[in-house]
Design a protein around this nucleic acid. Structure first.
Length: 291
DNA sequence: GATACGTGGAA
DNA sequence: TTTCCAAGTAT
């Protein structure tokens, strides 16, 4: 199948419809882009904008972040969620400072070796920051591909080998064009080809879309497993960490007690936070963010 | 491959 | 009010 027309139409659409996001501007370097990619993992753009500004201003280089205590990274992460990302970004910054002369690597494999960088993020940084040709397969692109090429409303739970092969067929040969396709196809998924209420009437490739041509058939198969939050260990961890973030000093255990009434769950969550190195025990029954 | 891992806004 | 889901990674 020749997807060149799909690529061309999408690039033409992106040229006028793209959002003006700060990490896409010419003055955003590889490090600023890398910070944005960490923050955007499972987190909407709207919630990332302010924390990203704060981070790149406070820590304009990987070395600047690496030289700060990891607990400060966790504190500055605020309520973005998944605070292990802050820790891994700090670890990645340390590796870049120590092993890459302070420069974000431009090579996919070197990026992939960094903590918190998986196949998506490595490809995204290589593509967006360095103009390299890579399949950038995020949730948006997967949904766009599923609809255009496969004719189904939603892709499988996890990326498959078939999806990667399909993505290769879309990817233009020329690196700069491939990089533009990567960001443009993500944008199409984020703005038009959305999970709920897709705007097919505004879609530049609706005539190329197998799902649209088929009359937008509803998704078959089991509904996705819902992710509960209320009452979970994750919520408990979040509550405990919020207390520690708000304090400049170590916090006595009694103060954590007030943040989560269930003792067994609280202790289990605290232990897991310590295992994850998001929290350290300092002195008898006192806890703090790590150094 | 399934599961754990935060948070908040929109439907 | 409940459910869905948002530029994933690590185990």
């Amino acid at each position: 199948m020749d997807y060149a027309p799909v690529v061309s139409r999408t690039l033409r659409w992106y040229a006028h419809a793209a959002r003006d996001l700060p990490w896409r501007r010419p003055d955003a370097g590889p490090w600023a882009i890398m910070v944005s990619e960490f923050m955007l993992q499972q987190t909407p753009v709207a919630r990332v904008l302010q924390p990203w500004q704060d981070w790149v201003q406070r820590w304009p280089t990987p070395a600047a972040l690496a030289d700060a205590p990891s607990g400060e990274a966790v504190r500055a992460w605020g309520r973005l969620g998944y605070p292990r990302r802050a820790l891994r970004l700090h670890q990645a910054a340390t590796a870049i400072r120590d092993d890459h002369d302070g420069q974000v690597p431009d090579d996919y494999q070197a990026l992939l070796a960094l903590p918190g960088v998986g196949s998506y993020t490595a490809a995204a940084i290589a593509s967006f920051a360095f103009g390299r040709r890579h399949v950038v397969l995020d949730t948006n692109v997967r949904r766009v591909q599923a609809r255009i090429a496969t004719g189904i409303e939603f892709p499988a739970t996890a990326p498959t080998a078939a999806e990667r092969l399909l993505a290769e067929q879309f990817l233009p040969t020329e690196p700069a064009r491939a990089a533009r396709w990567a960001v443009a196809s993500m944008e199409l998924g984020a703005l038009i080809c959305t999970a709920r209420g897709p705007q097919c009437d505004q879609c530049p490739v609706r005539t190329d879309c197998a799902w649209h041509r088929a009359g937008r058939p509803a998704h078959e198969g089991p509904a996705r497993v819902g992710q509960r939050y209320q009452g979970t260990d994750r919520q408990c961890r979040g509550a405990l960490l919020a207390v520690l973030r708000s304090s400049d000093d170590a916090v006595p255990a009694e103060e954590l007690d007030t943040a989560w009434p269930d003792r067994a769950q609280r202790e289990r969550a605290l232990a897991s936070l310590i295992t994850d190195r998001l929290v350290v025990a300092v002195g008898p029954d006192r806890y703090a963010l790590p150094d």
